[in-house]
Simulated assay, not measured.
Amino acid sequence: MLILSEAVGVGHTKAAEALMQGIELLDPSIEVQVLELGRELHPVSAGLLYRCYLNMVTRYPGVWRKVYDYKQNEPLSLWKQSFIYRMFHRTMKDMLNLISPDLIICTHPFSSSSVACLKRAGYTLRLCTMITDFHAHGAWVQPEVDHYLVSGEEVYTQLMKMGVPKEKVSITGIPLTMNFRIKHNKQEMRQLLGIKDMPTMLVMGGGLGLGGMERLANILAKWRDSLQIVICTGHNERLRRVLEAELHHPNVHILGFVNNIDRWMDASDWLITKAGGITCFEALAKRLPLFIYQPLPGHEENNCEFLIRHKLAIRIDTEEEIADWVDKLLCYPQAISFLEQNMQQFQQMLDPLATARAVLAPLRAADEKRSGKYPPVFISKKPATY
C-alpha cells in the first residue's frame, strides 16, 4: 500500500502515519509506505505551494476564503486537476511504475486529484481517498476514486449531494496513532513532563503555529500566577523565539514542535486551538475540552461550525470572551461539564482501527477470490451518527 500526503501543514501526514500504524497492526505482512507526494517529486513547486498557502491564510484570509468557497460544493474541473498534476506530480507515473502498489490511499485532495488523472489516462490501479476534516470540499471528489473514508455522517451526506454513490463511502472517523487511544492519569503525566500540578491550559496552532498564537499567549499571560500555560508553536521557530523573549514565568512553558503532544494533552485541563481536523479529533479522543480561536478560513471554519453545532467545542473570538472563560474555568470548572459529557459520548463511538479495516477488507476479498474462495461482499456500514 502506498499512502500519499502533501507537505501543507502537518495534519494530512499525521493521518497517513496513523493509518499506516493501524494497517501494520492488523496485518503485519502488508508493506505500507507514506510519501508527501509533491515534496518527493517536485520539491521546488511544492515549496512554492506551501509558501503561497501560508501567505494567503495569514495575510489575506478574506481572499483565501473566497477562493475556498468558490464552487466548494462542486468537483474540481478537469482543467484544474490537470494543472495540479502538471505543476506538482507530473513524474508520478514513473514513481508508481517503480513501486507498483496494490492500493493507493490519499489524505490530501491534490494527490487524490492527480491519481485520478492517471486513472482517466488508462493507468489501472485502486484508489482510496481519506477526507481529514469534518467537512467535504468539492476538491476531494473525483469519479475515479474507488472508496472514500470519511469522518462522519455529515461528510457522507455532502459526498452524496456531490454525486458520489453511497456504496463508495465508509464512515470510519479519522485515524489516530496508538498514543491517542488511551487517556493517562493527569497528575502522573505532569510529573513525567516536569510541570506543576495546577490548572493547565494547552495552546496549539497546528504544525505551522498559526491562529493568532502570539496575541492569545499574551492575553493568557495575565493569569500566569494561577494558570499554567503550555504553548506549542509547532515548526514556527520565529514565534517560539518571540514568546520566549516576551514571557518569562515558571508557569509558562514554550514548546516548539514535539512528538509527544498526546502526553501534553493528557497533562492539560483545556485546549485552545485553531480548528485543524487532526488536532480536534485527537482532543476529542483524549476528551480534552476544546476552545476554538481564530480558525483558518475555509476548511477550518467549517470544522469549527461542525464542532460548535454538536456542542463538542466552544468558540472564543475576543479578549473579553477569553477573559470570561478563563475566570469561569478557574472558579467554576463545572461550567463546561456539558462539553465533557458530549466529548465522552463522541469518544465512545470511535473505533480507532475502523479506517484500517475499511482499507483492508476489499484487498482481502480480492485475495480470497483469486484463491478460489468466495467471501461475503464487503458492504460499507454506517456507524452511529453524530
Rank of each mutant, 00 (worst) to 15 (best):
E6C: 09
E6S: 10
G22F: 04
D27M: 07
H42A: 09
P43Y: 14
L49I: 11
L54F: 14
L54C: 13
N55Y: 15
L76H: 08
K80S: 05
S82C: 08
I84C: 01
Y85V: 06
R86L: 14
M95C: 06
D102R: 04
L103V: 15
S113M: 15
S114K: 02
A116E: 02
L118I: 02
T124K: 06
H135F: 10
V145Q: 09
S151Y: 01
E153T: 08
E153L: 05
G163A: 15
P165R: 14
K168G: 10
S170F: 04
G173M: 09
I174Q: 06
I174D: 00
P175E: 05
T177V: 12
M178C: 11
D197K: 12
M198R: 12
P199F: 15
M201L: 15
G205W: 01
G206W: 04
L210Y: 10
N218Q: 14
I219M: 05
L220E: 04
L227K: 00
T233W: 06
L243M: 09
L247T: 07
H248N: 00
H249T: 14
C280A: 08
L290C: 00
Q294V: 07
C304P: 05
E305R: 12
R309I: 11
I314F: 05
I316E: 01
E320N: 04
E320H: 05
K328L: 13
K328Q: 13
A335C: 11
M349P: 01
D351A: 09
A354V: 09
A358E: 09
P362W: 05
R364P: 01
A366L: 11
K382R: 07
A384H: 03
Y386S: 00
